[in-house]
Simulated assay, not measured.
Amino acid sequence: MNKIKNIKLALIPYLFKWLFLTIIVGILSGSASAIFLKLLEWATETRKTHSVLILFLPIGGLIISLAYHYFGKEVAGGNNLILTEIHEPKRVIKFRMAPLVLIGTVGTHLFGGSAGREGSAIQMGASLADQLTQIFSLNKSDRKILLISGIAAGFGSVFGTPLAGAIFGLEVFVIGKMSYEAIFPAFLSSIIADEVTRNWWHVHHSVYHVTHIPEATLLNIILASFAGIFFGLAGHLFSFSVEKVKSFLTSKVKFAPMHAFWGGLAIVLLTFLFDT
């Protein structure tokens, strides 16, 4: 009986602490996602209206890479840096990751490059959340939970999927030891961030309607299984190709920012070659 009472007493400060922290994380991440989505919408519409912008992709890529080279070496690891800090905490992620990834991704979209929004949202959410580590002098265990909350909030708010955001944030612990203490903060921060994006900033997400759902027949299940195999092989081929191209560029071009220039130039040439 006393044990149950002690657990309840310990639960109260835990709830209040993480309620307070996740509200801050949710507001910061939700606001960052809202600004990010608004700027992405502007960049996309501008690019569609002025197709000539594709010609500036090599220069745009070079400028963005130079910014990372001179001002963002400590945060250039991106998602890998965040995962490393969760599993092997060393130092607080620099705040500069958030503005660098925001400007870099929007700039890439503006000039016709390809950059996913999920990675950007995760990096913004995690870097903004990690600033609270120093402000409130959190220990390593709490910092892990804070980073997971930032990831969940960033992912959930940028796509308008708070449940998926929370689960995604918790998945980063699969490599190590699952922390049940992170479940409440992850879900709450993701929900708050989504509410901030939708209702505070009035930013709405794309809605995709599924017009046809195939029957769960044996044949369809077999076909889906084969499709999964080919999708996996395609993903593996893509990852393999990226590593090979990266290795080739690194061996031939020593100054890293020039990689983006040559990559952008290749995209421009392919765009005109295939008339897309």
Rank of each mutant, 00 (worst) to 15 (best):
G60D: 08
G112D: 05
I151L: 14
F56K: 01
G104Y: 07
F159K: 02
V75W: 13
E118I: 03
E88G: 01
V92L: 08
F95R: 11
T161N: 07
S65P: 07
L110Y: 02
G113Y: 06
T108G: 00
G61E: 07
I54D: 10
I145D: 02
A129S: 05
I103L: 12
A164R: 02
N80T: 10
I59V: 15
G60V: 07
I135C: 05
R47Y: 10
G150S: 09
I122C: 06
N80M: 14
K140F: 12
A121C: 05
G107F: 03
R117L: 00
G119F: 01
G113N: 11
T84E: 14
G104C: 10
N79V: 14
A67C: 09
G107K: 13
I64G: 14
F159E: 01
T46Q: 14
T84F: 05
I122P: 09
D130N: 12
L102S: 05
F155E: 04
G77C: 13
G156V: 02
I103S: 15
G61V: 12
L138A: 04
I82P: 12
H87A: 04
G61S: 07
I103Q: 00
H109D: 02
L132F: 01
I122S: 05
G154Y: 04
E88T: 13
A121Q: 03
K73Q: 15
L55M: 12
M124N: 01
T105L: 02
R143P: 09
D130M: 11
L128I: 09
L57A: 13
T49R: 15
S127T: 12
R117S: 01
G125A: 09
P99G: 03
V92S: 03
K94C: 07
N139M: 15
L62I: 08
M124L: 14
Q134N: 13
T49P: 12
E85G: 00
S137F: 08
L163Q: 06
G156Q: 00
Q134Y: 11
L163H: 01
G125C: 15
T108Q: 01
V92E: 11
V158Q: 00
L81Y: 04
N80E: 15
T46W: 14
G154A: 11
K140M: 10
S65N: 08
A67K: 03
F159C: 12
T46I: 10
I135E: 03
R96W: 10
V106N: 13
G104W: 07
G154N: 03
Y70T: 01
I145R: 11
I103M: 13
Y68M: 09
Y68F: 15
L83S: 10
K90Y: 01
G112M: 09
S51H: 09
L110T: 05
V101M: 04
F159Y: 13
V158W: 00
S114G: 04
G77E: 07
S120I: 02
S65I: 09
N80F: 06
G156N: 02
P58F: 13
S120F: 00
A164H: 06
P58E: 13
L62D: 13
A126L: 08
S65A: 15
F159V: 07
V92H: 07
A129R: 03
G113F: 12
Q131C: 11
M124D: 05
G119Y: 04
E88P: 00
N80H: 11
S51W: 10
